[in-house]
Nucleic acid binder design. Sequence first.
DNA 1: AGATTAATCTAAAGAGTATTGGAATGTAAT
DNA 2: ATTACATTCCAATACTCTTTAGATTAATCT
Lengths: 217, 217
Amino acid sequence: MNNPRHIKDLLYEQVARIGKAASSPKRLELIELLCQGEKSVEVLARETAISVKLTSAHLRELRAAQLVETEKQGKYVIYRIANRAVAEFWVAIHSLAEDRLVELRLVIEQMASHPKELAPKDRDSLVKLARRGDVVVLDVRPADEFLAAHLPFARSIPLDELKRRLSELPRDKTVVAYCRGPYCLMARDAVALLRKKGYEALRLPEGVAEWGMTPVR
Amino acid sequence: MNNPRHIKDLLYEQVARIGKAASSPKRLELIELLCQGEKSVEVLARETAISVKLTSAHLRELRAAQLVETEKQGKYVIYRIANRAVAEFWVAIHSLAEDRLVELRLVIEQMASHPKELAPKDRDSLVKLARRGDVVVLDVRPADEFLAAHLPFARSIPLDELKRRLSELPRDKTVVAYCRGPYCLMARDAVALLRKKGYEALRLPEGVAEWGMTPVR
DNA sequence: AGATTAATCTAAAGAGTATTGGAATGTAAT
DNA sequence: ATTACATTCCAATACTCTTTAGATTAATCT
């Protein structure tokens, strides 16, 4: 059985393994989360609101497709993205989805709720503003994710500490908050809180994965 | 039901529509074929060796995911890639698969059979050589695909005409043959034929999609 | 040693997908 | 009008995937 058709079938079948891994909403959410940094099964389950058992099963699939790697640390199993290419694929697939699927764009729009929440998409100019201190780039993800990687000149105040650490932010600067990416709601909530307290705040819908800064190894 | 969890579920579910479309080997093959140019259901079925009915069903899925568009031309229905982003996604997913899956790399290696079939990957230098006429870049795909788009300075001799049109190729130049991409076997067969006839021939494993030249509209 | 915690494995039910054959639709050729 | 052709629709079957529950493994804590 070495005919051309047989060979081709083998080839596309392998590529389809990646597609299969990316065909479940839960697995995609796990991938996005792992793009923020390595995590244990328990943490992944908590953050995604999936049962530990089911999380484990989905991670098993991701590992079968070689998209994630594991390392046993004591009684924990730490999962991480296999390499940067996986993060780039996550960005590629969700970007294509946003490009093609009206339904997705609709949900994203209604997520923004207030029209002025979107920050400028131009990365260079944002970095320039942040470097000069004209805006404060605020990372509202958990501290360990900030530690693993963060946008240039960002400072870390996790969302659940924001209320009591408001005083750390200058009142006269615009705050640009970001979190895990366009589907994460933490930055949205942070901006809502900041505005209620009188700050000028914008949400940057991108995260480290979209900026090509996913931590690996 | 406007709680955050519900919103997130909607978001990832939409992205998973793209993953689902890419989770079947046959659909991937159809996408790759459509990256070469628009085609009718009949042609797609013939080229992929899938029954017309099943081809139609898979194309239906691809259209549901908004990855392809259709246009009725007389009694034919012409399918095409929705836009360039789809071709880029095809390249992204098969590149990731090659990066991550040993099994895939193994099949590709045994496909090359002769070690020297691989041509230089550096695009600029290949284009330079082709411009100066130091090598002949040969497109062995069907004529309509060549017409839709081809690599710079390439000339077209479809594989099934190659034997009787050999005289069109200069005997003293290296021939670099390419076809639809790394999973297409036409360039491999062309190289085998050329070598048997005494030509110096190499296979370029990339096609128009990999070079970002997929025809759209 | 025994209890606790993290994670996985196995089995089973339900939901969804791939594939095929037969019928139906719409267009073009005779 | 009738016939041929390209494509899709519908229904049935086999298969695969998702999810949950119960049992199991392995490391840590008391």
